[in-house]
């Protein structure tokens, strides 16, 4: 499932599009590959994530998933894309603060059931989820309300939620902004290994080109 950008110009960026950018050009994200979107703030990193996630439609040009134009997608198709094909960690995380960490993570099981994916390969057992939480250092917070966590802890919950489902792409918007170097590395390794096991592609955005990630293709916007 490749993602193709075909002359896309987001409306808010129409006047600021420069050459050598993903905007207003043709660019294909190939499934199984890893990409790092590098740009200073205000250049549209989150916009790009929103376009791929199907939350933003305010752009000219076409977005194609495996050759299919997303403008023809109905809500059910988008729902399937979000639940089974493209897992996203939004910059503002979009967790449910009034639910516990475990409830936020279990929600993905409910969503999988809603799509009748009872035998999803990545529908992890509770033990597996605890193991991941342990790797990321938040296993003691599993029954704490998300609203009571620090932002760094929340980022790890959002990453876990994104991993706890089948996906062909995982798109992460500034996922490590509040993590220290060690935790960032642990999280990235976990993301890479799970993605590799599903032959999924990774798109990650970072504020600064100095934080270029090894093995990731840089994409300028």
């Amino acid at each position: 499932m490749d993602i193709e950008f075909n002359g896309i110009i987001p409306n808010p960026l129409a006047e600021f599009v420069t050459e050598n950018s993903i905007w207003n050009s043709t660019f294909t994200f190939t499934q199984g590959n890893k990409y790092q979107i590098v740009a200073p703030s205000g250049k549209g990193k989150s916009t790009l994530v929103g376009i791929i996630a199907g939350t933003r439609g305010d752009f000219n040009g076409n977005l194609l998933f495996e050759g299919q134009n997303t403008r023809q997608f109905n809500p059910m198709r988008w729902s399937h894309w979000r639940a089974n094909e493209c897992s996203v960690v939004f910059q503002d995380l979009q967790l449910f603060p009034k639910l516990t960490v475990l409830q936020n993570l279990s929600l993905m099981n409910e969503i999988q059931q809603a799509h009748d994916n009872n035998t999803s390969p990545n529908n992890q057992t509770k033990e597996r989820l605890f193991d991941w939480a342990k790797q990321l250092g938040i296993e003691s917070k599993i029954d704490v309300l998300v609203g009571n966590l620090s932002f760094g802890q929340m980022q790890r919950v959002a990453i876990l939620r994104a991993l706890n489902r089948p996906f062909k792409w995982i798109v992460l918007d500034e996922p490590f902004s509040h993590l220290d170097a060690e935790n960032s590395k642990i999280a990235l390794d976990l993301i890479k290994s799970i993605s590799a096991s599903q032959n999924a592609g990774i798109i990650v955005t970072a504020l600064d080109s100095r934080f270029s990630i090894e093995g990731f293709t840089p994409v300028n916007i």
Binding site: M76, S79, A83, L107
Partner: peptide
């Protein structure tokens, strides 16, 4: 919105 963005079907 958050449920929809996580792929919860709108019909449900």
């Amino acid at each position: 919105e958050t449920l929809l963005r996580q792929g919860y079907p709108h019909k449900k």
